[in-house]
Design a protein around this nucleic acid. Structure first.
Lengths: 206, 206
DNA sequence: GTCTATATGGTGATAGAC
DNA sequence: GTCTATCACCATATAGAC
């Protein structure tokens, strides 16, 4: 009789997947709050009421633990955004969905996304880093494609697509530095306002 | 006979001001590249070919050294921006000058401004921190006032002034993460493009 | 799988000679 | 004012018992 195989677990060490996730989640919060250098494995171990050695059982070192958080954040964000955006054909609606979905991560995976945004540049060269680069490139390419669509559809003015994309991502990514879930507006509401601002522009219509 | 007094030096320790600046500049670069926790006093001492003890002669500890860089960056940026903006009365031109001046710091004081942007939140409570807070508040207040002026003058559409200000600052501040002086565009040119994007908006005019 | 104990090295900061 | 030498501490990471 054939036994169903969970392909996600093939090749993994025979460790407790639950415990691995506990470590990833707690580490993401620590890295987000104190940065890679500021957060220590002792802090992490204390936060999950375990020993340092227990952490090293699941991850070979601090660097790879952090890298795993970063790539996991991107691996969630990027396909989810693609899926959302694909449900619209109007470029304005595609842009709105892109921005909402990106911002939504500040609610659903706050510490993971902050660790990703603040730790991306410090990743040393590795397979994981290359994977992260690919995912980021995909994400940025999607945004630029949306803007190009808009220009082709003549709903957006002609403009420098890559600068426009940077402007959008800058607004969203900087939220990592000030957004608090207990604030007046949700991350999606903030993104919706940014969408209106970037679409309409400051200048009053005649 | 009266001796002219440099008021900037009154009350300062009788140390070599030049050496102090050397330390500040080199430390700014290290903090900008590796972060507060990642940069060590040993690195710094080596970078200026001096001993660690020499650094501690000019600054009581690492934290106050970093704080000094942060507040100095703000103390340059904020009045300079005010002065520039005051030379225009049209809100669009004021906004353009604000953005150019802010971005210009990435060329004239690159490492200082990066250290400020990435280290501001981590500053512990202190007199220096309060000074930094005041300067930041002044800067943000100026930007919001420009936007309000524009709305009053009916050159800008009515909008949420604080969100609009955040949008502008996000675009500029995120430059700390990707701008390289050897790139194709200068920081001022980038800011000028951002100005066009944020003023006109994406949506095509009828 | 998780522990205690430890190896090893770097950190911020200081003492005291010159 | 700058040095060498050193402090106490904490970091990452490992060894080996259970």
């Amino acid at each position: 009789m054939l036994v169903p195989v969970d392909i996600k677990k093939v090749g993994r060490p025979p460790s407790n997947e639950n415990q691995r996730e506990v470590i990833l989640n707690s580490a993401a919060e620590l890295f987000a709050r104190k940065g890679f250098d500021g957060a220590s494995i002792s802090d992490l171990a204390a936060a999950i009421s375990q020993s340092k050695a227990a952490v090293y059982h699941y991850f070979p070192n601090k660097r790879q633990l952090c890298d795993a958080i970063i790539v996991q954040a991107l691996a969630t964000l990027v396909p989810r955004t693609q899926e959302q955006v694909s449900q619209a054909s109007d470029a304005r609606e595609q842009l709105r969905l892109f921005m909402l979905c990106h911002a939504d991560q500040f609610e659903t995976n706050r510490f993971g996304i902050i660790t990703m945004l603040s730790g991306f540049d410090a990743m040393p060269e590795s397979k994981t880093k290359q994977q992260a680069n690919r995912l980021r490139d995909e994400h940025e390419a999607l945004l630029r494609q949306i803007i190009r669509n808009g220009i082709d559809q003549q709903v957006f003015s002609p403009m420098d697509v890559s600068m426009a994309g940077r402007a959008v991502l800058s607004m969203l990514n900087w939220m990592a530095r000030w957004y608090r879930p207990e604030g007046r507006l949700s991350a999606r509401q903030i993104a919706a306002q940014y969408y209106e601002i970037i679409c309409q522009g400051f200048v009053a219509r005649s």
